[in-house]
Simulated scan of single mutants.
Amino acid sequence: MENERPPMYTGYNRALKEKARELRKNMTKQERHLWYDFLRYRQENWKRQRAIDGYIVDFFCYSARLVIELDGSQHYTEEGEEYDSIRTEVLERYQLEVMRFLNSEVDRNFDYVCLAIEEKVRERTGSPF
């Protein structure tokens, strides 16, 4: 149907609950840095390793409908890029926006990554971060 609105994200995939829990326990160095040194203490309610549809995203903010993905080298193979493209399309069907950062960006330019996230949250919510 032409006038049909895309579904709004309303929950998460419970079938991936255990895998998400395992990923939270074994976060990468960059995920730990972003979580413990920035996202965890923000007024927005951020979740880490959140299962959405058939995927587990690195970080998710419901109020901003924003997904943050930290990408290692495996994401820049032909297969990885194709997988990420499909994954992004699926997430966008839920009116979610996906921001991607290289692990090296988190390592070398953490302030830039944080500022970019703050600006995107402000843009999507209309409120200060």
Rank of each mutant, 00 (worst) to 15 (best):
L34C: 12
T77W: 03
F38T: 00
K120G: 03
K17N: 09
E105M: 04
S63G: 09
Y41I: 08
T77P: 01
E89T: 10
E81W: 05
E81V: 07
E118V: 04
Y83Q: 15
E44F: 14
W46F: 13
D84K: 09
Y12W: 11
W46C: 05
T77F: 02
E118I: 05
Y76C: 03
D111A: 05
K29T: 13
F59W: 00
W35K: 03
S127H: 07
E2I: 13
E81M: 15
Y36G: 06
N26R: 13
V113W: 04
I68E: 11
R122K: 13
R21Y: 07
S73E: 15
T28N: 08
W35G: 04
R14I: 13
D37S: 06
G126Q: 08
G54Y: 12
L34S: 05
H75P: 14
I117C: 01
P7T: 00
Q43A: 06
M1T: 14
G80S: 06
W35C: 10
E78W: 02
N26Y: 11
W46S: 01
L39S: 07
N109P: 01
V113S: 06
V106D: 09
K25L: 13
D37Q: 15
L16Q: 01
L70F: 04
Y94I: 09
R50V: 00
E105P: 03
V90A: 14
G80N: 11
E123H: 07
L91S: 00
E31G: 00
R124I: 01
S73D: 15
Q74L: 11
E81H: 12
V106N: 09
Y9S: 05
I86E: 02
H33R: 07
D53H: 09
D53G: 04
A116I: 01
R108T: 11
V121T: 03
R122H: 03
F59T: 04
Q43D: 14
L91F: 05
R21A: 13
L91V: 08
L91I: 04
T88I: 04
R42Q: 09
D111C: 09
V90H: 13
S127N: 08
F59C: 01
R48V: 03
F129W: 15
D71L: 06
N45E: 14
I117E: 04
I56N: 00
L70N: 05
Y12A: 02
G54I: 11
V98G: 08
R65M: 03
E81C: 01
E31P: 04
S85M: 10
